[in-house]
Nucleic acid binder design. Structure first.
Lengths: 247, 247
DNA sequence: AGCGATTTGTACGTATGTATG
DNA sequence: CCATACATACGTACAAATCGC
């Protein structure tokens, strides 16, 4: 645990940016890699300041950021701990429907295709010019009650990683977590819109969509990480939106 | 400006809590009172540390919090400024519809009533037991195109302040901002749900609602600040959800 | 209940880096 | 190039909460 953090900090010796960010990312890396699991105790400030070439204030700032992000909880006299996972999630932040008891219904994604998309103004505006954009189409069953259709757009570098991952993880994947782990891209903001529609992008679905959910995810630097369209049939389930993007 | 901050800090000499919070509230107070307006330059760290019995680090922490809350923007070599209001908003974070050009449509709220609500399990669970809860009903015209109906629930202490404010501000109010400024309650998380409905809470509206948007707002401490139901007729406008809660 | 040891929270003072004008 | 002002970093000190003895 502590040596994992130490190793990550050492590996980042050439990294740009402030020390507290390097340390923050190192701890985050230990968490997302699975070496550190929720509830586990993290090294104390004093320990880290002895082991790392960082002062107490720097370590405090790093921990402060992690508390801010909700990844770590701290308490005086006890120590610093990895925050418990308040919501289990196989899916990203979109398309979470609630059951009668208020719990999030399980989702069962099924990959139906992927391809590179033509470079259009629409994508260059989002992802920048010269970036190859690919699309991943999925049909997602919600609790085996009904299905939604999802179109996911992102730079090809990202979709490739996601597709690799998806095959291993039975086609389910938390995009936000993968992006953080594999690409070091924290998603810090998601803007979504909901609108009524009569369009049907997938005739063979056998139903006409009722609502279209569009989501644009941004990284900490304000870059667009991905764009997603989700077609939702007329159902009576509550659809959840949470401003809290913590993992 | 600077003397206003100084006065507020002096007035808070007996206040409990850390100094950086006292300073944060003092600056926030100067903004609230109108002495400091968006775009205005705030005192530098050095200035404050000379005028106040606070060290540089304490002042930096206070400013850091305000940046975090989106109330202040800072830049190296230039200074600290009161954040511009980037999105003009007479309304809180809910019920923002987009026009054809992607801009947020103006909203025109109209107060139609307010009253204390019976203490039910539903409210004690949200706000705690022994808290008197009141309801504010409003009809909100969106760009004079259509109307939505809003029911806002919060502890009476809050609704009272909002009602006072609403009368002054022509019945328009940014709840989040008022709560931050008047009550020192930063809203840090909003959880929303959308669901189809056939209920009509207000027969006299002349339309049947199509969607119900429910929003629960939480303070930094995890307390529920308010709960809101918004009844939306069938319209073709995009409804916006943004995870970024900055003002 | 009391007393230390541990650990985070707050605060101070100082120094240096870096973007702005 | 220089002054200004924020950003980062270091080291220290003490307060407050927690835990074990």
């Amino acid at each position: 645990m502590i040596d994992s953090i130490q190793a990550r900090v050492a590996a980042a010796h050439a990294a740009t940016g402030p020390k507290y960010q390097i340390l923050r990312d190192a701890i985050l890396g230990a968490i997302t890699s699975g070496e550190a699991i929720p509830g586990m105790r993290l090294p104390t400030e004093a320990e880290l300041s002895k082991l790392l070439p960082y002062s107490l204030g720097t370590i405090q700032k790093a921990y402060g950021q992690l508390v801010q992000d909700g990844v770590v909880v701290r308490s005086r006299g006890r120590g610093s701990f990895i925050a418990p996972i308040q919501r289990q999630m196989a899916e990203p932040r979109h398309c979470r429907f609630l059951g009668d008891d208020g719990t999030i219904l399980p989702v069962y994604p099924h990959l139906v295709g992927h391809q590179q998309v033509r470079t259009e103004r629409r994508w260059t505006e989002l992802f920048g010019s010269g970036v190859k954009v690919a699309r991943i189409d999925r049909v997602i069953s919600i609790n085996h009650e009904f299905e939604v259709f999802s179109r996911f757009f992102a730079p090809q570098a990202i979709t490739r990683k996601l597709l690799n991952r998806a095959r291993n993880d039975a086609e389910s994947a938390n995009f936000k977590l993968i992006m953080l782990r594999e690409l070091g891209m924290p998603i810090t903001r998601i803007v979504q819109t909901i609108v009524r529609t009569d369009d049907n992008p997938k005739k063979q679905l056998g139903w006409r969509p009722h609502l279209v959910l569009e989501a644009t995810a941004y990284t900490g630097e304000g870059e667009v990480a991905y764009f997603q369209e989700i077609y939702i049939p007329p159902v009576d389930r509550k659809l959840l939106f949470d401003s809290d993007l913590r993992l």
